[in-house]
Design a protein around this nucleic acid. Structure first.
Lengths: 215, 215, 215, 215
DNA sequence: CATGAATGAGGATTCATTCAT
DNA sequence: AATGAATGAATCCTCATTCAT
């Protein structure tokens, strides 16, 4: 999951990140105070400032890996010529990234308002926008565009929602992907293949570096 | 600050709600201070407290209408026997409610973390959960359940997202609904009608205020 | 108990006084807000201001009767020549006044700090001081003075405290008075009568106008 | 505001306590704002919060010593068998504690209403009640009970009052104690010793810190 | 006789951040 | 690598009071 093997400075830095991630998930970014993080670790607030320049920095540091993964995917997508197959592949790879870092995306999602004027929040929105543009044909019908956008969104938001359904995680992920792919496919005017079956064979769900541990 | 002396029998209460709604949308609930709202209206913070007991109260007051609409829909849904037609209708009516109060839902969505421990936040989550349970067959396959949940979610989140696509609002809404209905329909094992076409005639979905006759 | 038969303006005025007295007793003067009083009566805060000029005014109005009673007693005491008998009488009459308006004195006592810079608080302190000076011989020994002061105080503070002892109110009052009188008597160097018995015959417990309904 | 930069390893905590104690005495707990305390010390309100968790905490911190002393005395009292001698000793030791912390007790007394719903206020009331129960025989006459309670109260309230009488502090304390002891003694039905003389030799009452050997 | 609407001053508390040590 | 002490700005909220109607 981590692309650049980060230097193992002290482990305090890592601990801060872990506690911060947990707290941001539980109570949200805004409502997590540095004091709480410090207390949980048994250190002083000032200690946090030794490792991170600001509170936002802690947040940002959590997203570097996932940000890179998304950027790589977008870069890849722009390289390809626009075909249904490529778009399906984009969806498949997005699914892997999303579910590999579900907690993190959840933080972003649940704190949209708070994070919107922090770079990390805007960056994320931009990436999703970029992705959804890769899925749309510029001159498609409104209905088609709506379907494309919905495909991506259902993948993203579905990832959090399906955690409440009991069942095998990977099975759920694939079901979600299948639905999203149908939505995408149905945006294409004439299409020989049976939309309901097609998606399940979207194979290359393993994006270049993204190795999702099927948690 | 105030140039024209405001009228005695005032509509201040309403103005507060309007400004609050706008600010909550723009910068989020937590990051909107009562001072800002008061300043915008040219009144004192204390004036807000004349009209609302707490900051949360302002928020809650914004949602009473929508809350009632959702509750009525859920009530109606529970009255019906579970059939695909009923579920389509649920989706259709949800679509109407969602897009009728899109800004409000956006506030809830973008401030999830912040609002999670406010009753209004939890209430909303409960309602969506109730709705999504009405769409699922308890003994359906995991894949089917995932599709049902996704159908509702794509409707909900899609409502905000499609605002960035140019085109007629109603047309976009129907397209979104069509996608969601397909997702739902495809969760049904054997189904004679063509799933892709069927949904578009979901009948009363176009009636602005679907009056669920609690039969 | 009331010396000047107050005009029966509206009964709202009286109701305000009653509620205020109760609340001042329960939660204290400072911690009782005008809103609470108004709410209890089902009127607006502004209505209170029709009947009383300020919050302090409400408080002051409660004490006019008792203030007069004390002033009369002090006036009477100054008229007499200083003898043990007169002092006993002072104590006896104080006892009647104190227990006749115990709740009110309790308010003063429990809110000393708050009321010290309100005229009503200072007035009360002055009166108690005046009373205790009437009990002391200016050239008595320190020990004697201490006893005289203690006699009065035990009467005053005892009045609240003995409410928690079960038993007949008047019996308790007389016991309290007996103790106080002993204290006073023992401050007198040579004294033929038996101090333990003497006090119980302090007869004229009915001060001129103070008609204590033996509640 | 601050001319000399305060020392690093500071005694600020203590200074806060001192200023707070003084202000609480002068104007009362409620009417003392943290801003006033902070200003007096030339620090920010936030600085107070570095040293104490809440305003109440500052108050509580002032009472820890006295609270312990009272608890020890009560503990000791409960250990002994109930005899007049023990009760006299209780009174004597109470006298030492009360006059040793007169300003503090004054704060409690003058702010009763305000502090009644703070733990420290209730704790204090409970302790006085416990003490007064140790002085009473459960099956004594009402008159006797009243005398016992009065004995303790006169000691408590007398402690503040006698500060206004000129004279040696210790002499005044002993006079007060003598009066209280008489009150207590007179509650005992038949008693060979002369009540008026007996109390003055109450032995360990003069030992500054009566060490109750919890026998 | 009373209300509806509002104010201004002040309350306790919390937070991210800083910096000398 | 981390702490102790402190700041400044902001937060929500409460209160006694006012005044035109």
């Amino acid at each position: 999951m981590r692309s650049t093997p980060r230097p193992r400075r002290s482990n305090t830095r890592q601990q801060i990140q872990e506690v911060a991630r947990d707290f941001f998930m539980e109570r949200g970014y805004e409502k997590t105070s540095l004091r709480e993080i410090a207390d949980e670790l048994g250190v002083t607030k000032a200690a946090l400032y030794y490792h991170f320049r600001t509170k936002e920095d802690i947040l940002v540091s959590l997203f570097s890996d996932v940000g890179i993964a998304l950027d790589e995917l977008i870069f890849w997508g722009r390289q390809q010529h626009r075909s249904l197959a490529v778009k399906r592949e984009l969806l498949a790879r997005s699914s892997v990234i999303f579910s590999g870092a579900a907690p993190l995306f959840n933080v972003l999602n649940a704190n949209q308002a708070t994070l919107s004027d922090l770079s990390v929040g805007q960056d994320f929105k931009d990436r999703v926008t970029a992705l959804s543009e890769l899925l749309q044909e510029p001159d498609a019908s409104v209905a088609a565009k709506v379907r494309c956008v919905t495909a991506l969104l259902s993948l993203l938001y579905g990832t959090f929602a399906i955690e409440h359904i009991e069942g095998d995680a990977e099975e759920k992920r694939l079901a979600l992907l299948a639905g999203a792919t149908e939505l995408l496919t149905s945006a294409y005017p004439t299409d020989d293949s049976d939309p309901r079956a097609s998606t399940l064979d979207a194979p290359s769900a393993t994006a270049p570096k993204a190795e999702p541990t099927a948690s």
